[in-house]
Design a protein around this nucleic acid. Structure first.
Lengths: 134, 134
DNA sequence: ATGTTCTCTATCAATTTAGTAGTCTTTAGA
DNA sequence: TCTAAAGACTACTAAATTGATAGAGAACAT
């Protein structure tokens, strides 16, 4: 797993929106506060909305808010949405499995599966709510 | 960290060479046994040699062998050589640090640092010798 | 000499990444 | 009802990375 910019921005945006849960948050506000290119951010929010994490309202006074409680959005889900597999190699992935050369080599493969297990367990048990400082 | 083909092939080649430590192993033999495109494999072996993991002899009866004991080559080193950082994000990397957007966000960053620590510890303590079945 | 084998550099097509651009649709409020 | 504000949607693009391939050269054994 290697985090793309898009995914990093997605986290910053989700955290920003979660921290302003009493209002509809505008793209331009998130863009300013988190230093994310606005047009790029649009696409990211659209993806998050498309996957059910956000709802929005258009027009004057429009903006975004969380569709669900911030405790129900895990870090793992967001990474899988933007960057795919958590495992270091396709053949060790459960959700994004694909054949790769080392597959036949059990010893090597099992190391990467252990890493996958650790990472998945950790990220599936961390939510956006956990990321908000109080 | 996401393993490239090149890196996967490098592991298979190192293991193959380690398993034939009594002889000079030819590129073409590794290519056949491990199903690695020959010209691609050449580059990989050259990198491994350049970094001091292999020595070679040219000409008839030439080939490659390990420059050091297989117990002294760690999985971590090889991944760092071919794919760079073990950490999931540049700002959490010790060896390949770079600035990234989430950097300011301590809570998020610390999660990725924990992953980096686990992965580094594990891969630094696994050597090519550990990968050879007996 | 000759064939074998490693060495080195260049090139390349496809994919991914990190955006930018422009148009359309919806909404609130004057 | 007009208008400005804001999200929705689609297309495009430049640069980097990936996964190779190509070909000429140098060293070595026989």
């Amino acid at each position: 797993m290697k985090l793309s910019r898009k995914c990093e921005y997605a986290f910053l945006a989700l955290i920003d929106i979660a921290q302003h849960s009493d209002e509809l948050v505008k793209i331009s506000k998130i863009s300013e506060r988190q230093n994310i290119p606005k047009k790029f951010l649009e696409q990211i929010l659209l993806m998050l909305k498309g996957s059910g994490y956000l709802t929005s309202r258009r027009g004057a006074n429009g903006g975004y808010k969380l569709a669900t409680d911030s405790e129900e959005i895990t870090v793992a889900e967001i990474i899988r949405l933007f960057d795919g597999a958590l495992a270091p190699v396709g053949s060790a992935s459960e959700n994004f499995y694909e054949e790769t050369p080392i597959e036949e080599h059990e010893e090597l493969l099992s190391i990467f599966k252990e890493i996958r297990d650790y990472v998945a367990e950790k990220l599936e048990n961390t939510t956006i709510a956990d990321l908000i400082e109080n």
